[in-house]
């Protein structure tokens, strides 16, 4: 699993505990609205553009269900695999663009050509599991000029990348951004996701019912009151990522640039994933879903990263 290795700060844990004391009740609308307001503040947008949910995955599902029956879905392969699955289940037509090494780029001309009929483009930017950037803001803008194209950008790794297309939602009703607090705010066990949408999305999603638990709502609200802890944990993860990347390259592995909290690397060592698993280190082997010999490793605590590097070093000897 790809998670943040650091616990949230004490005040957030205490807030979650407060929520635990109310778990006989559903989360109340007042608190949900407070969460929406704080998200809006964090995103520099208006709270009526914010839809919250129990994890961003549910919002992805919802968007696919609502918008795909009368339009083509365009996605990339690989991507967050559950979205590809839902897309396959619901789409009138599904077109996937294969990402290939070494750059894992998305050719924007290919996408422009594909959007010659009513379409919804769903991209994770940065991409999971390659860590690459698929679209710069200008390229997204160009796509949005075509009003029959809807664009949903999954920015689950926004805090690691630092760039966003979120400010375009006021101008473009056909854009929505989905984000998660799972990784950046260390809330994977509570699942909090949100969507900031342009008007086309909001019109169809206004009655979306979030089923966020009490502890999740309280913890998310507390997390957003002061983001400095999150920012410092992101910095630590990025520093560790850069260190692991350099070390892996130094040992002799082919590692690809990342804008996330994980690294993609390639190796021809047979059963690499299994050998690591035997040493209690689990990484994601992409050979079953995508290309043989490609692996994604999440950045952990410094000592976990060290143990991983140690095994990787031994495997090459």
């Amino acid at each position: 699993m790809n998670e943040n290795p650091f616990l949230p700060p004490d005040n957030v844990i205490k807030a979650a505990e407060k929520g635990l004391k109310e778990i006989n009740r559903y989360s109340n609308i007042k608190n949900i609205n407070k969460l929406r307001e704080l998200i809006a503040l964090y995103c520099n947008t208006h709270s009526n553009r914010v839809v919250v949910s129990q994890g961003s995955e549910f919002l992805l599902r919802e968007v696919i269900q609502i918008f795909s029956h009368d339009r083509k879905i365009i996605m990339v392969n690989p991507s967050f695999f559950p979205s590809l699955y839902y897309a396959k289940e619901h789409a009138k037509k599904l077109v996937k663009v294969q990402l290939s090494p070494p750059k894992f780029e998305l050719n924007s001309d290919v996408i422009l050509k594909e959007t010659n009929e009513p379409s919804i483009l769903i991209i994770d930017n940065p991409n999971n599991p390659t860590g690459s950037i698929l679209f710069e803001k200008n390229a997204i803008k160009e796509l949005l000029e075509n009003k029959q194209t809807l664009v949903l950008v999954d920015e689950a790794y926004y805090e690691f990348y630092g760039k966003t297309a979120l400010d375009l939602v006021n101008e473009y009703p056909n854009l929505a951004i989905i984000r998660s607090m799972d990784k950046s705010f260390s809330l994977a066990g509570l699942r909090v996701g949100y969507l900031v949408g342009g008007n086309i999305f909001l019109e169809k999603m206004s009655d979306f019912q979030p089923f966020i638990s009490q502890p999740a709502v309280y913890a998310a609200i507390e997390s957003l009151k002061d983001t400095s802890y999150m920012e410092s944990s992101i910095k630590k993860i990025i520093n560790e990522r850069n260190r692991v990347e350099a070390e892996l390259k130094n040992i002799g592995y082919e590692v690809f640039p990342s804008n996330t909290n994980f690294l993609l690397f390639r190796s021809n060592i047979p059963d690499l994933g299994l050998q690591l698993m035997e040493c209690e280190t689990i990484i994601r082997d992409l050979s079953n879903d995508w290309l043989n010999g490609f692996y994604r490793v999440s950045i952990g605590l410094p000592e976990e990263n060290e143990a991983f590097l140690d095994i990787m070093n031994k495997l090459l000897k």
Partner: peptide, 13 residues
């Protein structure tokens, strides 16, 4: 694959 379990399950459905 043995290693792919949980949230990010398989692409080949």
């Amino acid at each position: 694959s043995l290693l792919q379990k949980g949230k990010e399950s398989s692409n080949v459905t």
